[in-house]
């Protein structure tokens, strides 16, 4: 059947016009999407520069080392030393991460190497719910369960058995302590650490396990001698990730840690972490000069430490997820 040449040309031209307009839409949208996509990078820069700018009044007034290692916190006298807050944050984080690491790694290994499909299906909702519970609810639980537990049981026991050792001596028997904050944090970061370690174990090729099992190693020996050396950097990255989450946790820690500006010497001493300092005081500090800048400086210190932690951990983890 002979085609009408004129009509055919018109149709082709129409198709061409449609194609061009579709291309144009695509190009246009691509540009818009590109701008949106680089926003996250810009956002980090904006937050950093914004905090730096707003805390500049205090950074330019005092030497940085005085701020970091100064022990006095008397805003009304113009003395801003973050030392006890930084140490408080580190204590709570170290205790939390230290408590979380052994069970988390064991659970992750179990789920990745031993557990059958049914156990995994059972464990997933547990971890999902732990991850979904809001920080303030962890705080309420800490207040109702952990603080009394530390006050009435762990504290007295520790004092009786290990009281000669300063770390375990009880000077402030209220229960509001580094240990209470650490216990709450440990449970909060559990789902994150387990998920990351589990993922890492899954990236190890099955052949490695088979080779080791074939020459007569037990499963634990395979994990210990073959898998662990492989995944060690990843596990450390997972721990760093958990630590950075714990480092910035605000409301749950704030509710159980006592909030006394002092350098803690024992697990049972109260502490006052940086996020709690910001949350408790920011917003109603306008009358004291530099107070605002000091608190934003605290936020800046927090941000810089967490940025470093996160960038390190992410770069290490990238190597596994290829």
């Amino acid at each position: 059947m002979a085609q009408n040449p004129i009509q055919s040309a018109a149709t082709t031209r129409n198709q061409h016009v449609v194609a061009v307009s579709r291309q144009r839409t695509d190009t246009w949208v691509r540009h818009v999407f590109f701008v949106i996509t680089i926003l996250p990078i810009g956002l980090i820069a904006v937050v950093l520069i914004g905090l730096l700018y707003r805390s500049w009044p205090i950074l330019s007034r005092y030497p940085f080392t005085d701020l970091l290692f100064g022990i006095d916190w008397k805003p009304s006298e113009g003395r801003f030393g973050f030392y006890s807050f930084i140490v408080g944050t580190v204590w709570v984080t170290v205790v939390g991460v230290g408590l979380a690491i052994p069970p988390c790694i064991l659970v992750a290994i179990y789920l990745a190497e031993y557990a059958g499909a049914r156990t995994r299906l059972l464990a997933k909702p547990i971890l999902d719910v732990l991850a979904a519970i809001p920080p303030v609810v962890y705080g309420v639980w800490g207040l109702l369960a952990v603080v009394p537990l530390v006050e009435t049981m762990i504290g007295p026991w520790s004092q009786r058995l290990l009281g000669f050792w300063g770390l375990f001596a009880v000077q402030q028997p209220t229960g509001f302590s580094v240990l209470a904050g650490g216990i709450v944090l440990a449970i909060m970061i559990t789902p994150l650490i387990i998920a990351v370690v589990f993922e890492i174990f899954n990236t190890v090729p099955v052949d490695l396990r088979n080779a080791s099992l074939a020459v007569g190693a037990t499963r634990w020996e395979t994990i210990r001698r073959v898998l662990l050396p492989q995944v060690m950097p990843g596990i450390i990255a997972a721990i760093v990730l958990g630590a950075s989450r714990a480092f910035g946790e605000t409301i749950a820690v704030l509710m159980v840690v006592g909030n006394i500006a002092q350098v803690p010497h024992s697990l049972f001493d109260a502490a006052y972490p940086l996020p709690a300092l910001i949350a408790n005081n920011y917003g109603d500090m306008m009358s004291i000069p530099l107070y605002d800048a000091a608190l934003l400086c605290a936020a800046l210190i927090l941000l810089v430490i967490i940025l470093l932690f996160n960038i390190m951990a992410t770069i290490v983890l990238k190597r596994f997820v290829k």
């Binding site: 996250p40 990078i41 905090l51 950075s244 910035g248 946790e249 608190l295 936020a299 927090l302 996160n310």
Partner: peptide, 18 residues
């Protein structure tokens, strides 16, 4: 961009709030 997003994920909400 993914690194930036991971880093943003890690920033504590108190810092965003402040």
């Amino acid at each position: 961009v993914r690194l930036a997003l991971d880093v943003l994920w890690g920033i504590p909400s108190i810092v965003y709030g402040a």
